[in-house]
Write a protein that binds this DNA or RNA. Structure first.
Lengths: 220, 220
DNA sequence: ATAAATTGACAATCAGTGTTGTCAATTTAC
DNA sequence: GTAAATTGACAACACTGATTGTCAATTTAT
């Protein structure tokens, strides 16, 4: 049917095969996305700016991503996985002391944001105002976080069940507390030392657990 | 210098003086802003749509507002003041019982969001991704909220000072907890009864206060 | 009744932006 | 060396949206 234009034959260029060149371009756009989205937000950044930042052209942008939102989605997902991975790793390393695990996890979380404040904007601000699809993606991530927290505390304190409270709501609240503290910390330019932020958030966790065990021990 | 076109003489129309007509138009745009921004978000709404919703034309939009952002700012500020006013009022009405005050305040907060879910999106989501100016406005509001919470708890529990924790961070965390719980509640379609949401958030407050007084009493 | 003010509908302008296409220059395979 | 693949710069196109301007119809004051 079509007049049969032979597809161009792939070949190496500057010593690199096609796949690697494509991966490198993809990677440069990812970095440009982090740099621009993370500072000016999703809606304030154009495709052209992303291309300039990546030192590539529009053609390659659409080679790697369906549209602007797709790039944001990938940047978002990568940030989530990087930070989550670091936190899980450090938690594992502090087993089995639950307090050390919680404190180290919190500290790693906050350290990650301080090392790269752009992460905070991408993870907690812009993702919510792009599209219903991105909002859903974000909600799944934070729900997963609450779920993990839930599992963690219930494994450590099995007596927490049956206190009349809703563990899911409590977990959602604690996650929200950390996020809000983190955001203010970031926007205030990291005034407080990371140890203070960590300890105060940990205090929220501990308070909740304490109160829980008190309630359940007096109730049971 | 200018060819001296006389300014049009103001007069009544449909029995209403100019000021009142302008105020009514302004009001219709405010309602349109709440309706559209509150559902589709700031970036998804155009001036034309706002005009259609308000059953007015672009000319009147720019009569009332400098631009799209100005309308959002006013809608935001009004929502803040309405909700805050209701919460403060009900807290006052439950004086002097601190638990009743806290629980009633929380319940009013959540009820307000349930009665008008558009409020949640405007207050907690979109305001953060519009401009640095709007972000700053939002931060001032939530800082004010944390400040109020701080004052409230410190007045009730003067022994809380000197526990080694940073009350400002704790307050920021508690506010973030309520916001996050509220957002998930809204987006989940108000599955849980408002009493449950209220009680669980209150439990966070109470846990914090309890833990605080325990720490200070054992330390002092 | 008439002229002026007011309104509403909509055209016109102007600036961006996403997206696709062109083309010359560069690099590679043969 | 030559043809094909690849790249990079940028033009072209289509579309959207903010903002200003036009004008006829309506209402009011005198």
């Amino acid at each position: 049917m079509s007049p049969a234009t032979d597809p161009p034959k792939r070949r190496t260029f500057r010593g690199l095969p096609l796949e690697q060149r494509q991966r490198e371009r993809h990677e440069r756009f990812m970095e440009a996305g982090l740099a621009l989205y993370g500072v000016r937000g999703y809606h304030g950044v154009t495709v052209r700016e992303l291309c300039t930042e990546a030192r590539l052209t529009e053609r390659y942008f659409y080679e790697s991503f369906k549209d602007r939102e797709a790039l944001f989605g990938e940047v978002y997902q990568r940030q989530v996985e990087q930070l989550r991975g670091r936190v899980l790793e450090v938690i594992r390393r502090h087993q089995p002391d639950p307090r050390a695990m919680a404190r180290a996890g919190l500290e790693t979380f906050f350290q990650g944001l301080r090392e790269d404040p752009r992460c905070a904007r991408i993870l907690f601000v812009d993702v919510l105002s792009i599209s219903p699809a991105m909002t859903e993606q974000s909600r799944q991530v934070t729900s997963g976080l609450s779920g993990f927290l839930l599992q963690f505390t219930q494994a450590l304190y099995p007596q927490l069940k049956g206190s009349g409270l809703d563990p899911q709501i409590i977990a959602t609240g604690l996650v929200g507390a950390c996020i809000n503290v983190a955001m203010h910390w970031v926007y205030d330019g990291f005034e407080q030392p990371v140890e203070s932020v960590r300890d105060n958030c940990y205090a929220l966790f501990e308070a909740m657990i304490l109160s829980w065990s008190v309630k359940t021990s007096t109730a049971g």
